[in-house]
Design a protein around this nucleic acid. Sequence first.
DNA 1: ACGTTTTGGTTGCAGGATCAACTATAGCAG
DNA 2: CTGCTATAGTTGATCCTGCAACCAAAACGT
Lengths: 157, 157
Amino acid sequence: MSEPQWLTEDEQRAWRALAAVMLRLPGGLEQQLQRDAGLSHFEYWVLALLSEAPEWRLRLSELAHQANASLSRLSHVVTRLELREWVQRTPCADDARATMAELTQAGWAVVEASAPGHVERVRELVFNGLDDTDVADLERMCAQIVRNIEDAKRRDR
Amino acid sequence: MSEPQWLTEDEQRAWRALAAVMLRLPGGLEQQLQRDAGLSHFEYWVLALLSEAPEWRLRLSELAHQANASLSRLSHVVTRLELREWVQRTPCADDARATMAELTQAGWAVVEASAPGHVERVRELVFNGLDDTDVADLERMCAQIVRNIEDAKRRDR
DNA sequence: ACGTTTTGGTTGCAGGATCAACTATAGCAG
DNA sequence: CTGCTATAGTTGATCCTGCAACCAAAACGT
């Protein structure tokens, strides 16, 4: 049994900083959206994804993937969004197992109304103090980390 | 009323990547800890912070700050950890309002047993594919983002 | 010394997330 | 065509978190 490979000092600091972002950023975003639009961040994200999809429609599984969520979580959220009449479920023509989620006019209005405030907040929390190089680096590193997570998930299965 | 300042293409990609990390990384860490040690990531984090503190003791408010959590959340978690006898609450000598959380021997054993597996997973998910420069950049950017969040919180109050 | 404000912490409750169990359809091997 | 397995989605139970209300002690102004 060998010693585990501990993190270096630099890695520890970086990990603490990333963990801090992971723990605090959701709350920071949530707060503005909740106050100004009565939406959770995840609800906003789902509506925004639908608003960018062709015909405002996506299969639930595809939507779950794009939203980085489990199908279960998405299903619950779509149910709530349906109750508020911002989204509608419709059966899928190609595949009888599948369900489509479709943005309603009212849902579109919600996205349109809340997007500017939300984008401003993202700017404020995430991009303030970062230059163009940083933004490119951030994307590259986060993409790498997401790949790592997906690989680990696949390995675990 | 002026047009909001939308994100550039680069910013959008970076934001999506960061959001993906924010949404998936907790789950990725949780899973390993839950499976191998029966701990949530946040519980581990709290125990680890205590294990590094002098005399294994910290005031709850200080612990909450270091753990990036609200006092309420921390209080709930400490209650659960106390039930498992990994942590003990003791009154604070200097300030009668304050409470100290202290790691027990059993709690220390839990940290010691689960740390190697957890560190390995952090390595796997976060640092795999990043070089030294990346690590330094990641820390700097995350620290900046945390500052942004704290500033916004202060402004909102 | 006394009232007010701030800080430290706890608790109950409501809302959301995860997990496991389940149904139904599609795809595939023989 | 018939099982078998994989995919798509739903649902209910349980657990966690945030919020608001609350209490107690400290700090502060006068």
